[in-house]
Structure formats: C-alpha cells, structure tokens
Design a protein around this nucleic acid. Structure first.
Lengths: 229, 229
DNA sequence: CGGTTCTTTGAGGACCATCAATACGCGTGG
DNA sequence: CCACGCGTATTGATGGTCCTCAAAGAACCG
C-alpha cells in the first residue's frame, strides 16, 4: 500500500471515527489494489478472508444457481461489500467482479474482527454499515416481489435522475444487459420496458436517457422511500 | 416483566455472553408480552423504538406497496427482528404481525445502542445477529430471482423435511396463502405447484405433506447451502 | 348451522422468457 | 481506411409461466 493512500482511507466513513491505533492496526495488513474491468474479485461459496472496500469504480455483486445468474447489487465508492461473510466467517453468498476499472482496499477478516472487539467506535461504524447493507437487501427483495418489471425500471430511472446533477438527463453507466439482470428481467424485456415508458416521456439514445415529463414518470412509478430510499 | 422470565431471556444467544450489569441495564426497560394471533406489532414506515425478540410463537414480516403485499420472512423463537432499523434509528422497512400466539420481548432502542457501545461482547452478538439477518435477506432475494415458483416450493419442502424430526412427513404450520406470499406467488399458483410436484412424489393432505420419494424431489430441487442454508 | 375465510379448479389473459434474426457499436488486424 | 469479428441491443414471433377472475368445495368459528 502506498502511503499516499492513507489519508483517503482514513476519511472513509467506516474509519473516520476510530482511534489512531485501531486504524494503524487495520491498515498494517491491508492491501490497496487497482483492478481492470471485468475482473473476478470474489467467488461465491469461497471463504471470507478479506473485507473489501470500493475506493473508486463500480463493482457488481452477483449470484448464480443452476446455470442461471443474476446481478444482486452494484457497489459504488466508499462502501464495503460482503461484510456479513467476514463477520460471521462464513462463505460468500455472492460473487464480486469489477465493472469498470476499480480501486479496492482489502483488509484481512481477522484484523476486522479483532479491532471490532477493542474499539467500540469501529464496532459502531461496522454495525451501521452492515445495517445499511441489510436494508438494501430487503429493499431489493421488496422491489422484485412487489413491482412489475416496467415499474422497476420506472423507479430506477426516477431514482437515477434524482441523484444526477443533470436533472432529467441520465447516463446509464452500465450495460443494459447488466441493468436488466439487476432489475430481474431479460435484456429483451428491458428493451420493451423502455419502449413501454415512451408513453411517460422516456426517450432512450444508447447510454443516454432523457425524461421529458418527469412528473408523469414519477406519478407512474410511485417511488417509495421504503424501497427506493 | 415477570422475574420468572429472566433466566430464559438470559440464556438467549443474544445475551448469553454479555456482562451482568449490561444485562441488568437491558432488561430494566424491557417488556415481555403475550400477543394473540394476527396482531400487528409493528407497522412499516414507523420509527424503531424497540428491538423485538421472539420467545415463542411465529411472527411474519411483510411489506406492501401500491395495494400489493408480500411476506418477506417468518421469524421463529430466539431471533430478533427489525434490528437494523433499531440500530440506524430509521423507519421499519417491514411490518410485523403475529401468526400464532406469540411471546415477545421488547427492549427500548436507546438501551440497545448505549449497551452496544459499552459492552463489546454484546456488540459482537448484535453484529452476528445482524449479519445473519442480512444473509437471510440476500438468500431470499436469490431464491426469488434465480428460481421458478415450482423450484422454490420444492426447495422449501426439502428444507422443511430436513429440519423436521418426522423424516419425510411435513406439517406446514402456516396457511398456504401465507406460504404462497412468502414464496412469491399467488395461492392459486401454489396449489398448482403442489400438483406439479406430484410427479416427484409429493402428496398433500391439508396441512400434512408427505414426500414419498425424497431423493427424487431433492434431485429436482437442487438445494444449495448458499440459498437454502 | 350459517357465515366467513381459505383452498382448489377451471378458463382466460397478461406478463415475461426464449429463440431467431437483424442492426448497431467497437476494437482488431489486414 | 475498411473489412471483419465479436458482443450488445433491438425487434418480431412464439410459448411458457404466472396472475386474474370466477365458482365451487372444504375448513373454521361463532
């Protein structure tokens, strides 16, 4: 790890409140590494030797069963992934692979567990992070179980637009194939869902999506903080 | 709270390792209460004032959106529910209601948070519990996204049989309607899924289900510890 | 025993997946 | 530069899965 990385890491939400000695202890055994796109970082079912934290780039968490595969989450900078496996010392439930170029911190699971026991501020941060992951997983399941595929897409777009600075212009930063998998449908069906949303002012041009009548789309989507928040 | 409750609570996994003073602190403000069946304990969207722990009976966690409703989890004794909301001090993502008669411990969220900071053993227990909930939520989502409804039912039966002492006889202890919702389908569809599984030796008689050719059913279901474990 | 809810069964249709074919974008190498 | 190959995206045709609606039977409870 380069010493120039340390200030950046120190300011991550997970570490910002913890003591200096705990921090030392954690980064002593840590790696920081750059990965090219489409690199498998973690394989479902393996044991959890490291806690991973995304510093830059995007990471996909996916699962497979019986030849089928699905994208469960898209992890963006400043959050951890597969924290639960690290803590319980259990096999990973999801695989992780880079989508874009990505910079990742890896901290040995044992270090996490031992610092956890000695530093209550770190314990607090860990538990906050973990609770957030749990809530995200519940929201994902609610989204899938309670909404149709067109509704899921509509809500995805509304949410992306609300987070974007561009207002009603969105740049899908992932392949539509992957987006389809994340939203629980096939690529073909995603394509049709987009055309279905033309009635609500959605205009697609490759990666670029424009919401011509955001209020209309939002009225159709009925976003809910308990699913989309 | 009755003093006769205390030994039972003390031996719960969440409390078994913690210090005496922490335990005192936690139960001082706690309630233990019996609820009749079909009682709403928690409403989705409300604030999280208490951590709940099921001592006996079964509790359903469910969510709704736009007039639709789904069963997200069935909570059995000795586990907590809605821990994440308590920790992050955020609104509940799911409602909770009793299915059977149930005995529930309720501990004020503030007490949980303050003992968490002072007792690292308790922190460890909390984080284990939370990680377990997270993993369950991920498994639920994987189950829904990766399997068809007949496959979900088959795996549910295989799992119930493996946990039952009866071997290949299962007693569904919940309404089929609820089971259907948990498995992400309609009651009608569950009924048809059961008849589809007759080909694999599944015989249904009201609440009672018999697996006449367990190996056959298991071969069809392809259970996976990373989903069903 | 009557009312209510759950369960099952049937018919029909909506939603979604699959398969196939085409078009598009993009990088590689001729 | 263009041709080519490769993967993605779209579009159409078709079929399967699943939901909706309706009705009848079964279980439950007052």
């Amino acid at each position: 790890m380069r010493s120039t990385d340390i200030p950046g890491i120190r300011s991550l939400p997970l570490f910002s409140d913890i003591g200096e000695d705990s921090f030392e202890r954690l980064i002593r055994g840590a790696y920081v590494q750059n990965f090219p796109p489409h690199t498998e970082l973690i394989t479902e079912g393996e044991s959890a030797d490291f806690l991973h934290i995304v510093v830059s780039g995007t990471v996909e968490l996916g699962s497979s069963w019986n030849e089928r595969e699905t994208c469960m989450a898209l992890v963006e900078p400043h959050t951890t992934f597969i924290l639960a496996a690290t803590i319980r010392d259990r096999p990973y439930l999801m695989s992780a692979r880079t989508i874009s170029k990505a910079r990742i911190i890896m901290i040995p699971s044992e270090d996490i567990r031992s610092v956890f026991e000695n530093d209550s501020e770190f314990a607090k941060s860990i538990v906050e992070e973990l609770a957030g992951c749990y809530r995200d997983a519940v929201k994902h399941a609610k989204n899938i179980k309670l909404r149709s595929s067109v509704e899921r897409l509509a809500n995805y777009l509304v949410r992306q637009a609300s987070q974007s600075s561009e207002g009603d212009r969105i740049s899908l930063d992932i392949e539509k194939k992957k987006l389809a998998s994340f939203l629980g449908m096939t690529p073909e069906n995603l394509s049709r869902a987009f055309t279905a949303l033309r009635n609500h002012g959605v205009e697609v041009n490759g990666e670029q999506v424009r919401l011509n009548r955001p209020e209309d789309l939002t009225r159709f989507a009925r976003p809910d903080p308990l699913i989309d928040g």
